[in-house]
Design a protein around this nucleic acid. Sequence first.
DNA 1: TGTTTAATGCTAACCGTTAGTGTTACGGTC
DNA 2: GACCGTAACACTAACGGTTAGCATTAAACA
Lengths: 205, 205
Amino acid sequence: MTVPPGRRERKKAATRQKIADTAMRLFLERGYDAVGIRDVAAEADVAVTTVFSHFASKEALVFEQDEDFEHRLTQAVTGRAPDEPLMPALRREIHALVRHCTAEGAAPTWRMIEESPALREYEESMRLRHAESLATAIAADPDLPQTTTACRTIARFVIDAYSLAREAADPEAAVDEIFRMIEAAWEVASPSRRARGTARAATSR
Amino acid sequence: MTVPPGRRERKKAATRQKIADTAMRLFLERGYDAVGIRDVAAEADVAVTTVFSHFASKEALVFEQDEDFEHRLTQAVTGRAPDEPLMPALRREIHALVRHCTAEGAAPTWRMIEESPALREYEESMRLRHAESLATAIAADPDLPQTTTACRTIARFVIDAYSLAREAADPEAAVDEIFRMIEAAWEVASPSRRARGTARAATSR
DNA sequence: TGTTTAATGCTAACCGTTAGTGTTACGGTC
DNA sequence: GACCGTAACACTAACGGTTAGCATTAAACA
């Protein structure tokens, strides 16, 4: 797993990495809009078509490091301890993800994304795809007998928590604040778990 | 208000309408991707630059009718009866909006949006802007002493409800199911309203 | 060795979008 | 009614992301 089997795949991975590194360097140096794909290709010494054979779009170059986001979220659901409830596991993972993207070194990249409408749009769309994966993972858990709609809803809420907390003044506190809300929503959606009417009574109008 | 004041503005509105109508007709006839801006401009007998002076992008041509979405949502908050709680008002509005976009005549347009990644991305981004407006409206209500984070969170949840319900097998039922969850989240976020510790107890770990 | 295949390169183009520059017609003013 | 400022629109040309088509190289494999 650490060493790719063949030389061909190693070279391919190296090319991909070189393109991604070159792109991010140029983007941070000159600004995302000021750097064209042709610039990236020239600086990485590859053809424009090669860039697009590795990355589906210019925006994808920026979010290459965000690739495992989806996997970490689903893993937090499917790989949690057998007796651990869903919400604490998700909350812990979101905490870690928020901490990761609000860390010192990530600031320039994050500012660049904030300032580019194209990058914001791309990320939003990407997060919704992640939410769908998360919803599938939640729905597949035999211990969580939710409706499909409830699973998709909670998954969206979790993604919302990530997006909103990242922009909050105190991201860590925001995660907790939002997750208190999500947990209440989750309790309402799972009347058969252990709630003895408490959650339902809280929402009866 | 019903009759524009000058001939100039009337002509401008007519041009805009002609462009929008022509575009939607061509999109539905030949498919969104198969119709170029140059086609729309030619068919509407205007210059390409005129199209872009009325619409910011090709996608915006499709969502022209969706313009009042944002206004209806904020109006549901700021214009509700003085003693009406927030959630029933929002739920009623989302019901109406979902019903509107799942109506018979809207089916081809909706299918076109579903099938085009560019249109989906545009809409998602647009809805997030709507969520921000809604959050501002909620935060401005003196009867709702929420934190900024709570207002933004609830606003996102409401937008999520719209997006998810629209895709559900039974949209109307989905709205109710999701709003039960949102109301629970809202109760947790507003400990000072009338909840006497019930909601808080439901989420204490 | 020879054959197959995947990665990359090159060229040219498509399409959304915009800048620059006129041209026209409306609206208010004398 | 003539006059001028301005806003809508047209035309040209270009920029930049993206892709198709085809050639080339080098790895994998028999």
